[in-house]
Design a protein around this nucleic acid. Sequence first.
DNA 1: ATCGCAGCCTGTACGC
DNA 2: TGCGTACAGGCTGCGA
Length: 276
Amino acid sequence: MPELPEVETIVRDLRQSGIAGRTIVGASIHWHRTLAEPAADQFVQRIAGKRILNVTRRAKYIVINLTADLTLLVHLRMTGRLYFAPKDFPLDPYERAVLHLDGGQDLRFRDTRKFGRWYFLEDTTPVFSRLGPEPLAEDFSAALFAARLAKHNRQIKPLLLDQSVIAGLGNIYADEALWLAKVHPTRLSGSLTVRQVFHLYEAIVKVLTGGIEKRGTSLGETSVNYSSVTGSYGENQDWLKVFQRTGEPCARCGTKIKRLVVAQRSSHICPKCQRN
DNA sequence: ATCGCAGCCTGTACGC
DNA sequence: TGCGTACAGGCTGCGA
């Protein structure tokens, strides 16, 4: 679910909420595996009393910088959601972890499928060193993108989903970028022309920027759906050109959008615009 | 190096 | 209505 634009929206909303400067007075873990590290009891002990300095994003990680040089990373995976609630508000059955903030407010983590992970770290290097460049960073150029691709020769769709090659794309935005650049998802990366690589570079930047402008993509029924910390949904689903639009006409040529499976995941393409 | 698959989890949609 | 099956936006680890 949440990809770069959704995580970015959440991070901006967290900042907007004035979370910087708040003190974490305690924490509760209701599903111990949510804590990737350290163990839940150590986490609860050690995070109490730390103050939140600021909130940023790296790839699909929400980065909560704390005093004492500590960092809390939150990865939402498929169904994770962060939201605020008064501390005495009834617990949702899918609540996995909670930060108790000063002033009687909780920052709660609800995660139906339990795939989401929290990392409470002194050093984020082991996690971040495995990530490719940020596609919306100023220094992310077409040349850099081409250089990343040149290290591999594999199907372009799974390559785009590989977070060590380029960070932040997921199934939705990868499909949208490939449609925009008119590239078939199974094309081998090494067979792309310089021109196609450039178009793909531009398409990636465009779909991610557009996704942020629309505050992310909210698809599916509401219990599993993405929403930001305020509970608000995104609107990018209304602007998708191919994702989950099987059978609908291509916005460019009118051909029916087709669904296929690439690297064990669903892909959506215009069979006329995107030829292998 | 790359690919295919199983696994982590739960809920929903759909066909019979 | 009830049941089995397929599927879901992410990511990791394994063997081939």
